Simulated assay, not measured.
Amino acid sequence: MTETRQRPRAARRARFGVVVVTALLLLFGVPWATLVLPWQAAVVAVGTVVFAVAAAGFPFLMFLGHARGRDWAARTGDTLLGVVWVLFAWSSLGLVARLAQAPSRFVAVTVLVVGVVLVAWGVYEAMRVPRVRRTEVTLPRLGPGLDGTTVVVLTDTHYGPINRTRWSERTAAAVNALTPDIVVHAGDIADGTVAQRLTQAAPLGTVTARYARGYVTGNHEYFGEAQEWLDHMASLGWEPLHNRHVVIERGGDRLVLAGVDDATAKASGLDGHGAQLDAALAGAPDDAAVVLVAHQPRQVAETAGHVDLQVSGHTHGGQIWPFHYLVRVDQPSVQGLSQHGPTQLYTSRGAGFWGPPMRIFAPSEITLLTLRSPAA
């Protein structure tokens, strides 16, 4: 019986190994072929060694960084991933140019220059304070007393191996400068434990809102300490929208601000976690508009028709072009406002970054939603 169980496990490991090796060969091999092969033998020899060492070291850096919690390895591996992804994307385009008879050395130099410029720009875009993106959303059930209510969406801060305490302080100040009625954090606060990212997350305690500050878990919380992050956010004065809601009243009208756990919560096996829309809306007034915070846009498949507006993050807008094409396979929206039956969905590109400290053609954002009543 034991031998029978071990065979499928060994087969899965073998398939996983083949996938990893194939991905590494493509990711590092295409840039190698584009940038190195067109040159004389000495350059080819040196370039081959550089790419081979990088490809061999990359899995170990990612394992040490993300499985063992070594921040130095995560910083190195993540940066290497960003650089090689940019070179892979543009080298692929370069190979197309070579098929069209473009000189191979011209293509190599062009890809290298474009890659260097995009990596430098991408790092700058990732490290700057997010720009404010303003959008008006009309909710048919929103009473006139709540017309003009502002909701600031902060999501995917991803405090991690790079210490961004100063960035966190400046981002919190940018949120406060908007004097919002409501602030929501739509998940993926950090990569790591509360203890590891305590200093970086501390400025979230300075965020202010006139009526409410709500927080829901993202998928990255379920890589480690989801409940601890919920408790910590509560200690900072945020309302954990852990499958629950709060009611906001103004001008004689009411708005329901609800939240559900991330789509991955149930599979985590953590007691009391798992997206439960019924629990989140239990006891909510029937005549009030509902704004629901759910980390992943694909959760709209369950919430459509039950809420007026879903606010999500998770996608990062693709983060590094052309990754948004892959994101679109998994999610119904990559960024911005979209309609899903009677429910509207706003997908934020997020404030931070995951993995590579870069954003290329996917700028970060702090979202300012202004809710409008058709009766106002």
Rank of each mutant, 00 (worst) to 15 (best):
residue 343 T to V: 06
residue 48 T to S: 14
residue 340 H to R: 10
residue 33 A to G: 11
residue 25 L to T: 13
residue 342 P to K: 05
residue 34 T to N: 11
residue 137 V to W: 01
residue 295 H to C: 02
residue 23 A to N: 02
residue 238 W to Y: 11
residue 299 Q to S: 08
residue 346 Y to I: 09
residue 56 A to W: 04
residue 242 H to C: 07
residue 257 L to T: 12
residue 116 V to C: 14
residue 158 H to P: 12
residue 64 L to I: 00
residue 160 G to H: 08
residue 209 A to C: 08
residue 246 V to S: 10
residue 145 G to M: 08
residue 364 S to Q: 07
residue 161 P to N: 04
residue 247 V to I: 15
residue 58 F to N: 08
residue 72 W to Y: 07
residue 142 L to C: 05
residue 344 Q to R: 09
residue 140 P to D: 05
residue 69 G to Y: 06
residue 194 V to P: 00
residue 332 P to H: 04
residue 166 R to L: 05
residue 82 G to M: 07
residue 97 A to K: 06
residue 22 T to E: 01
residue 140 P to E: 06
residue 300 V to L: 01
residue 172 A to W: 03
residue 136 E to M: 06
residue 319 Q to D: 06
residue 141 R to D: 14
residue 90 W to N: 12
residue 184 V to I: 10
residue 327 V to C: 04
residue 148 G to T: 04
residue 275 A to H: 01
residue 337 L to Q: 11
residue 66 H to M: 08
residue 95 L to R: 15
residue 109 V to P: 08
residue 77 G to N: 06
residue 73 A to Y: 02
residue 370 T to M: 05
residue 315 T to P: 11
residue 222 Y to L: 03
residue 322 P to V: 04
residue 143 G to F: 06
residue 341 G to F: 08
residue 165 T to C: 03
residue 254 R to H: 09
residue 117 V to T: 12
residue 57 G to V: 10
residue 133 R to E: 12
residue 346 Y to M: 10
residue 46 V to N: 02
residue 197 R to T: 08
residue 114 V to T: 15
residue 173 A to E: 15
residue 281 L to V: 09
residue 145 G to C: 03
